[in-house]
Design a protein around this nucleic acid. Structure first.
Length: 491
RNA sequence: GUCUCCAUCGUCUAGGGGUUAGGACACCGGGUUUUCAUCCCGGCAACGGGGGUUCGAUUCCCCCUGGAGAUGCCA
């Protein structure tokens, strides 16, 4: 039988690392096995649902290059949006009711709160619903419901015995039925199913063969198996993925830093870096390989190499991958990524002028090696397009020298700018080297103030190329300006 | 509290009854270099504890400890 897996997010927030990891693994597994990857929208929580989250889901999958074989608007098992399957859930809930495997519950939120409160106070071993309505006469309950009394439907979880399910990573997991959540709600007051019901019905109806989801779902595994049994269906295979944690060891969340894919996208990360890094969170290939393209993973992904232990998300390693993939990009595609950033930051105009484009083209090879995030481009080459707003003069003072030494160096260098562009880099280098010797200082000591003058900072792309791109005339003006400023300050 | 799961360098991980316990990030040195970065070389650094089983356990079993997750009319 062909593998059918799904990613079933609920559009109640932005797509985050954990969800995307689940999506990716399901997708890779489907591809590696020649099966189907299904996208299903679980929008049964009408209160938290919002359109932007749904749009964000589509944007994210598109950005990552993940397409689905079946999903909204595509495939034969639809609809793939749970809110459009409302009647189906009603039908199956009724079936459970008729079979005496579920019951109406009229308990109010207030009563439930009170029960919980009391259990907490008494440190009772039994937590959760007290099964108050479990033994209501079904005919009587139906009458109350039809009279309009608000109610939910709860599953009758067996009070004895135990339930086992097999997990591809963890092995068999067994739980006493008395430890399973006592009679969870399967249909809410508003008539919508809860996750448990909708999920089980859909996975069965859509012919899902493997459920790959995060380990936080392990506790509801037995519950779901009980539901399959109640319907007389065979449960799919389970595969619970290790959780993604933050630095402090708790489940990754906003307080650990960026977690939404939108943050990463806007923050200058490349999809190939994200995919590569995320795929190594709880999965490995062998003892040394670390670079994987999406295409590689579509071939190589296996359940066997999945890990059990949770993984801490390391922003620094992601950044390292990102730098690697920036350098890996072909020049034209990288430029196409960088230009809009420069425009958005007001470094170049929109549309870009020919002159700006020429400078950008010249600067490109210099910054390519230096970028870790695409968004760093503006800061890195702003000095080529905009005047320097202010100098931090201390940056211009080389080690073991005084600020008062600097204007002299700058002035004698300014003189060398004459004819700079006509000379080769080697010739210029020799010229500055000789000047340094003449002044009795090191090359570095001469170049540092110069660098600050021309680029505005002592960390910059290579100086001579920068001068060439900026133009010798402008460079000289900046050198003289800084010289004057320091001279004034050291008076 | 209860239930369940997990446990190799700081982090991601490989490995598995006998290994100098391997790789990567980070960090620290060194080289290339006009700064930074890239690149190259080198270094630091781990089997949580206690019992078994065994000729031999980091590896298998048990206990402890630690961590996490779940305990919702959220998924």
């Amino acid at each position: 039988m062909s593998v059918r897996v799904r990613y079933a997010p609920s559009p109640t927030g932005l797509q985050h690392i954990g969800g995307v990891r689940t999506a990716l693994f399901n997708y890779f597994y489907a591809r590696a096995k020649g099966g189907q990857f299904i996208l299903r929208i679980e929008d049964t929580d009408r209160e938290r649902y919002n359109d932007e989250s749904l749009q964000d889901l589509y944007d994210t999958l598109e950005w990552l290059g993940i397409d689905w074989d079946e999903g909204p608007g595509k495939g034969d098992y639809g609809p793939y949006v749970q809110s459009e399957r409302f009647d189906l859930y009603q039908e199956y809930a009724r079936k459970l009711l008729d079979d005496g495997k579920a019951y109406y519950c009229f308990c109010t939120a207030e009563r439930l709160d009170a029960v919980r409160e009391e259990q907490k106070k008494q440190k009772s071993k039994n937590q959760g619903y007290d099964r108050h309505c479990r033994d209501l006469d079904p005919a009587e309950a139906l009458k109350r419901k039809e009279a309009g009394e608000p109610c939910v439907i709860r599953l009758k979880v067996p009070m004895e015995g135990k339930t086992t399910f097999h997990d591809e990573i963890m092995g068999d997991i067994t739980r006493k039925n008395s430890d399973v959540s006592p009679d969870p709600v399967i249909v809410k007051t508003d008539g919508f199913p809860t996750y448990h019901l909708a999920n089980v019905i859909d996975d069965h109806m859509m012919g899902i063969t493997h459920i790959m989801r995060a380990q936080e779902w392990i506790p509801s595994g037995p519950l779901h198996v009980l539901l399959y049994q109640a319907f007389g269906w065979e449960a799919p295979r389970y595969c619970h993925l290790p959780l993604v944690m933050g630095k402090d060891g708790s489940k990754l969340s906003k307080r650990h830093g960026a977690t939404s894919l939108r943050d990463f996208r806007l923050g200058g990360y490349l999809p190939e870096a994200i995919i590569n890094y995320i795929s190594l969170l709880g999965w490995s290939f062998d003892d040394s390989r670390e670079f994987f393209s999406r295409e590689d993973l579509e071939k190589l992904f296996t359940l066997e190499k999945l890990n059990k232990a949770p993984a801490v998300f390391d922003y620094r390693k992601l950044e390292w991958f990102n730098g690697h993939y920036i350098r890996q990009r072909d020049p034209e595609s990288l430029k196409a990524l960088l230009l809009p950033i420069l425009q958005a930051d007001g470094v170049v105009s929109d549309p870009v002028t020919d002159k700006e484009m020429a400078i950008f083209d010249g600067a490109f090879p210099l910054i390519r090696e230096r970028l870790k995030l695409t968004t760093q481009v503006s800061e890195m080459i702003r000095f080529l397009f905009k005047e320097i707003e202010s100098y931090t003069t201390a940056d211009a003072v080389p080690k073991k020298m005084e600020a008062s030494d600097v204007p002299g160096i700058l002035d004698s260098c300014a003189a060398l700018l004459d004819g700079f562009e006509a000379r080769s880099d080697e010739e210029n280098e020799k010229l500055f080297y000789d000047k340094a010797e003449e002044l009795g200082i090191k090359m570095g000591q001469i170049l540092q103030p110069l660098r600050v003058a021309v680029t505005g900072t002592n960390i910059s792309p290579p100086l001579f190329e920068s001068i060439r791109l900026l133009g010798a005339e402008k460079s000289e003006a900046r050198i003289r300006a800084l010289s004057e400023q320091i001279a004034k300050e050291t008076l």
